[in-house]
Amino acid sequence: MVRSQTISAKIWYALLIVVMVLIALTSIAPIVHTVAVSFSHKAYAAAGAVSFWPKGFNLYAYKQIVADSKFLHSFMVSVERVLLGGAINFLMTVLMAYPLSRTSEQFGGRNAYMWFLIFTMLFSGGVIPLYILVKSLGLFDSIWALVLPSAVPVFNVILLMNFFRGIPKELNEAGSMDGAGPWYMLFRVYIPLSLPSIATVTLFSIVGHWNSFFDGMIFMRSVEHYPLQTYIQQLVVQMSISTMASDPNKYELMRQLSDQTLNAAKIVVAVVPVLVVYPFLQKYFIQGILLGSVKE
């Protein structure tokens, strides 16, 4: 009796492990397939003969990319926006989180500022007024159009503020006894003590900047100013989707014209930076997400 129970329990457990492995495989299979296509021979890819391992291995697609100045330029625009945008987001987050983490007794305006932030987070003018504003500020085709509208990541400010509030008040009192001002406290005490949280929110804004395509699409009028995601959206995805959904007569022709290995390689290049920061991201983000639930 006892024995049969353990045997059936063992079978269930083995089944559970198999199901977990299958689910995990499903999560990366599409990406693995795309990598395989990018390294395959064009003819095999067009014939749909590639599954999860390259067929007719070659670097043709990547050689094309290296020679494609528009693609490389878009890549650099993305790198630029990530560095500039990430730096601005970081500065805004720490500079705003610190004063807001004071109690309203220590900082009289705290609650008013807080409500202002909440209001901007909950309500927005929407895409068209922003589009017209950016246009009238003359920021079209400028890198600033990609970093300034999202300069203040309000949600991150609130997350970090909650974390700062969890730092023992004694530290602050000790600091002010020694005559330390708020700038010293922020940069020498609070930031060093909250590096994991700051890393989390900064990595989130970096990935956000890398991944966003919409602002590039509406604020940039020429391909040379497109960030990478916008480039891929306009020159890879839209083409494929319209191929997909076009009428059967055109379908064959469009299909022959589109270069799947090249498209796949462009996608892989756009994914690699995310994969590079992912281990760091993964180290902190669970903490970061649960940070929001920190109570006083």
């Binding site: 999560s27 795309t34 990935v207 991944n211 995601q229 916008t230 891929i232 996608i267 995310v274 992912y278």
Partner: peptide, 19 residues
Amino acid sequence: IVYLPHFLSWVILAGIFSE
């Protein structure tokens, strides 16, 4: 592994899925 797709953009995923 299962957290990873969350960090990929819909541009990339649409490119992958359309193929």
